[in-house]
C-alpha cells in the first residue's frame, strides 16, 4: 500500500529486504530453512490491516542431504512440478518443456515456501497476525505443538516437515522463520530482527 511504501521509504526496497532476510539466516547459529517478511498493509482506521507477502528467502535444509525417501505421492510430485513449470514460464517467458530445473523433486519445504506467497493474514489472526497484534514474538518448537496449534499455518508447516516456526513483529510487518530442526527461543535472534527490520530508521550495515 502507499502508506507502507512511504513508511518503508526508498532505502527499504525489496532488494534491501532480501539482503536482510538472507543475512539473518545465513549468519545465524541455528539452521533455518526459510525466512519470510510479511508486510503490513499499513494503518487504515476503516479496515483492519492485513499482512501480505513482502519477500522471502528459501535456504533449504543444508544439514539434511536428501537421504530420506519422500512421502509425497507420485501424483503430488507431478502436480508440484507442473505448477513450478507454469510459474517458471510465467517468470522467464520460456516454454516449460525446455526447462530442466523442474525435473528435480519439489520438496515439502520448497512447496510450503511457495504456497506461502499466496497467503495473507488479517491483523490478530494466524501466526503472523497474532505476532503483529500482540507485538510479541510467537515461537513454536516441536511437531506436537505445531500440530495442535489453533493456527492453520502452524499445522500446515508441520505437515510439510517444519519443526520450528517463529514470528517476530517489526515495524510495518512480521518476520517469520521456519526450520525442519528443533530450535528453541533465542534472544539473540529476536534482537537481531529488532535491529535489522526497524524500518523507522535507516538500514544498518550487515
Amino acid at each position: 500500500s502507499a502508506s507502507t511504501s512511504a513508511a518503508i521509504g526508498s532505502e527499504w526496497n525489496q532488494d534491501t529486504l532480501q539482503q536482510r532476510l538472507q543475512g539473518l539466516i545465513d549468519n545465524a547459529r541455528e539452521s533455518w530453512t526459510y525466512a519470510i517478511f510479511w508486510q503490513s498493509s499499513g494503518v487504515d482506521y476503516t479496515a483492519p490491516s492485513v499482512l501480505g507477502w513482502g519477500d522471502g528467502y528459501y535456504k533449504g535444509e543444508v544439514n539434511k542431504p536428501k537421504t530420506v525417501e519422500s512421502v509425497t505421492s507420485l501424483a503430488e510430485q507431478e502436480h508440484r512440478k507442473k505448477v513450478l513449470r507454469e510459474l517458471n514460464s510465467l517468470i522467464s517467458g520460456s516454454h516449460s518443456q525446455e526447462n530442466e530445473t523442474i525435473d528435480e523433486e519439489v520438496t515439502d519445504t520448497e512447496w510450503f515456501f511457495l504456497i506461502s506467497m499466496t497467503q495473507s493474514f488479517v491483523n490478530g489472526h494466524g501466526l503472523p497476525g497474532q505476532a503483529m497484534f500482540s507485538n510479541q514474538p510467537v515461537w513454536i518448537t516441536g511437531r506436537d505443538r505445531l500440530s495442535v496449534s489453533h493456527c492453520e499455518r502452524a499445522r500446515q508447516g508441520q505437515v510439510f516437515g517444519i519443526q520450528t516456526i517463529v514470528c517476530l513483529p517489526s515495524s510495518n510487518g512480521v518476520v517469520e522463520l521456519g526450520s525442519t530442526e528443533l530450535i528453541f527461543q533465542s534472544l539473540d535472534l529476536i534482537n537481531q530482527v529488532k535491529v535489522l527490520f526497524n524500518f523507522g530508521n535507516s538500514p544498518p550495515d550487515l
Binding site: 510465467l90 517468470i91 530445473t101 511457495l114 506467497m117
Partner: peptide, 29 residues
C-alpha cells in the same frame, strides 16, 4: 497476473533452486 514483489521472489527462488541443483549434479566441479 502476479504482483511484482512475488515475481521477484519467485525468480530468486527458481534461480537459487537451479544453483542448488547444479551444485548437486555429479557433473559439477
Amino acid at each position: 497476473d502476479l504482483p511484482l514483489s512475488r515475481k521477484k521472489s519467485l525468480r530468486r527462488f527458481l534461480e537459487k533452486r537451479k544453483e542448488r541443483q547444479v551444485a548437486k549434479s555429479p557433473y559439477a566441479y
